[in-house]
């Protein structure tokens, strides 16, 4: 399934780009994120707890950054194993465009799930995934704006 969105963020592009690469910010913004650790320049490991439809799952996964072009954007590719709940994999292209002293963030994401989540939650996945993506970028905008305000 495919998702996309656009957010206007009240912060200059350099700060948005920095935040997109700040693991502490990402960690608080990812819905259900329990752990996020940098293992190399472009690789992180993550633990995320999610509920999709009737299925609860804790995903252990690896997230990598690709096509990094500061400060215009990058692609994130991830894959998580949720035990018997199944697996999820996907990726997102994130683009930043300067808009005066604001920044417009757009993303295009693709996701695929397997196992019990697909079997029991299939009708709910699309809306859940869209909601989660939206939640992440909203959290991200709010966290960033809050940080800019407090700085």
């Amino acid at each position: 399934m495919e998702m996309s969105g656009e957010y206007s963020i009240d912060a200059p592009i350099a700060e948005v780009w920095a935040a997109l690469n700040d693991i502490e910010i990402l960690k608080v913004c990812i819905p259900g994120c329990e752990e996020l650790e940098q293992v190399s320049e472009t690789e992180m490991t993550a633990k995320v707890a999610l509920k999709i439809g009737p299925v609860k799952a804790r995903f252990n996964g690896v997230v990598t950054f690709e096509n990094i072009t500061p400060p215009e954007g990058y692609s994130i590719v991830g894959e998580g194993q949720g035990g018997v709940a199944g697996f999820a994999k996907g990726g997102a292209d994130v683009r930043l465009v300067e808009d005066g002293d604001k920044t417009v963030l757009t993303y295009q994401a693709k996701a695929q799930v397997g196992g019990k989540i697909a079997q029991l939650g299939s009708r709910l996945i699309k809306s859940t995934a869209a909601k989660l993506a939206d939640k992440f970028f909203k959290n991200f905008r709010d966290a960033l704006v809050a940080e800019v305000a407090s700085a």
């Binding site: 695929q112 799930v113 397997g114 196992g115 697909a118 079997q119 029991l120 299939s122 009708r123």
Partner: peptide, 14 residues
């Protein structure tokens, strides 16, 4: 089944 072989009709909901 979806194209990736996931069974989407695996309960009496579907």
């Amino acid at each position: 089944y979806d194209d990736s072989g996931q069974l989407l009709s695996a309960s009496y909901m579907d």
